[in-house]
Amino acid sequence: MSFLEISDVHKSFGHNEVLKGVSLTVERHEVVCLIGASGSGKSTLLRCVNQLEQVNSGEIHIDGDTVTGAGVDLNRLRRDVGIVFQSYNLFPHMSVMDNVTLAPIRVGGVSKREAQEKAMVLLESVGMGIKAKAFPDSLSGGQQQRVAIVRALAMEPRVMLLDEITAALDPELVGDVLEIVRELAHEGLTMMLATHEMGFAKEVSSQVCFLDQGAICEHGSAQQIFEEPREERTQQFLSRVVKSGRL
């Protein structure tokens, strides 16, 4: 059985069906990139995996356990599944350190000192150690996003979901954030990322899914999707991306 199995997931917001039967399997240590136009359902799919959105039908299994439907311990699930958002969503009333240690202390039951020591190691590793006492509003977008990644990592998740984490950043700040993701990929963290950074997707992913109108239109290896896309819609999408200079 695969590590993460998404089978025939449907999700609607009112009458708007956003996911129309998505199935996908992710193995341990795999990095899966979701590409596709805005509104194609990339973010919704990620949010369904950690149940920020509840699926209407279909099932999601993580490590053999069903995580959709009633009776699932959501707080437990979310400890295993980290997510980083496009808009960082740091807590503005807390320092960087408190942002990172909040969940380990409150949810993980780690002592404050231990949590802070570990947070410091993580913050240092992304070059944010000196900003531990700063508040999010005083940081640049790239710095905030690095803190947000560390905040998710501090819970030692088994899967990381990255939801267009560079989309809101100034171009010159994107590199720092992607470098961290690259390292995580090399260390073998299982990740699903929705992204518009095609060059990056090509480089890190073991699997690329092209979503179109709420369904997986084509999926395969990075090389196959980017070099020889089979589906016409994939080709159209990629040619538009090339035209805008993003690949």
Partner: peptide
């Protein structure tokens, strides 16, 4: 709502989210 999403996605319960994230802000 993104604040709630961030807090819940870290595994905080509804009341923990209220107490540590929503009410202080």
């Amino acid at each position: 709502p993104s604040q709630t999403a961030a807090a819940r996605s870290l595994g905080l319960s509804y009341f923990q989210t209220l107490r540590t994230v929503l009410v202080p802000q």
